Amino acid sequence: MKMVSRTDIGKVRQVNEDRAAIWHELNGLFLAIVADGMGGHQAGDIASQMAVDIVGSELQSIHWGMPVEACKQVLKEAIEKANEQIYAFASEKENYHGMGTTVVAVIASQELLIIGHIGDSRAYKIAGESITQLTEDHSLVYELVKTGQITLEEAEHHPRRNWITRALGTEPGVEVDLYEYAWRPGDTILICTDGLSGLVDSGDILRIIKSYDELESAAEKLIQSALDKGGDDNVTVVLLGHDSDSDEKRGDGN
């Protein structure tokens, strides 16, 4: 398994409120977390850093061989604990009231992905010539799409497309979405903030990832593509490549 993380402040923002962390080996498993903070007075970057730190710390107990449901429970409780601590921190300091963050945490074994998710940061799976969004956005426009009030195409350009309906740390309690997916050698997982997914469509994301043998090059091109399209937000990507046998799975023939 290969993992790479890249982030950029973008062309407009004064502070990078995105955070990401990867653990290449965690008791036989692999872990990646992405968080996109929000809130004034630099509260967003504090919220996202707390989310990555707390969730990462709480997940140090996971291990290969742990039952899937037990692993899901540990992930759920880790995100809930981060929510409680961010909310408590913000409640104690007037400048930080209302601060929060998205979070996507992916626990990967050689066969399985377990994902915990809140907000509009996303996880995708690239398999063969297809790309699949693995998470559902907690956003106003996604709710409008689900109820048939607007189309997916209209959602991409909606003036309120950045309004999220669920965040980490803004309320005393939070509902965590949990997902379980299979993956196999040759597949790639992308975790990203909306600084990428809001500017670069899934077809272009697929094309870029399939165009590069090295994850590092693909991650850098994804970042550059968001910057080329305006870079109006921080942009963060994490790529997980399943090539457990050899790099041949990514097509370099070595």
Rank of each mutant, 00 (worst) to 15 (best):
L222S: 04
G231N: 13
W163P: 02
T188W: 06
T151G: 06
L140Q: 03
N162W: 03
P185D: 09
L144C: 03
V141N: 05
D177P: 09
Q149S: 07
E136A: 08
L222R: 05
Y181W: 15
N162E: 13
K221P: 02
I209D: 05
V238Q: 00
V237I: 08
S211V: 04
E180K: 02
Y181M: 13
R160W: 15
G148K: 03
Q224T: 08
T135H: 11
E171C: 03
T132H: 08
I208E: 01
D232A: 12
L206C: 04
Y181Q: 05
D204S: 14
D233L: 07
D187M: 03
T193L: 10
S139P: 03
R207T: 01
S217G: 11
K221E: 05
T193H: 04
L196F: 04
V176F: 03
D137F: 00
H138G: 08
Y181I: 14
A182N: 14
W183K: 11
V235P: 00
A219Y: 01
Q149T: 09
P159M: 09
H242S: 13
N234H: 14
V200L: 02
L134P: 10
L178N: 13
V141I: 11
I208H: 02
D245H: 11
E156M: 10
Q224G: 08
E175H: 14
S211E: 15
D194V: 02
L168A: 13
D201P: 01
T193R: 01
E171G: 01
D204W: 13
G173D: 15
G173M: 12
E156L: 08
R166W: 02
T147I: 02
L152R: 09
G241T: 02
D245L: 06
T165D: 06
E248K: 07
G241Y: 00
A167K: 11
R250E: 03
V238D: 05
L144T: 09
A155D: 00
S197M: 03
V174Q: 15
T165N: 12
R250W: 06
I208T: 00
A219K: 06
T193G: 07
I164N: 11
A226V: 00
E153D: 02
D137I: 09
L196Q: 02
T188A: 05
I150K: 01
I150R: 13
I205K: 06
A167Q: 09
V235K: 10
A226L: 08
G231Y: 11
L222M: 07
G241E: 00
I205R: 00
Y179T: 06
T135I: 09
T188S: 10
C192W: 06
P172Q: 14
D228G: 07
V145M: 12
D137M: 08
D177Y: 05
R160L: 15
P185S: 10
L196S: 01
W163Q: 10
I164H: 06
A226Q: 11
I189C: 10
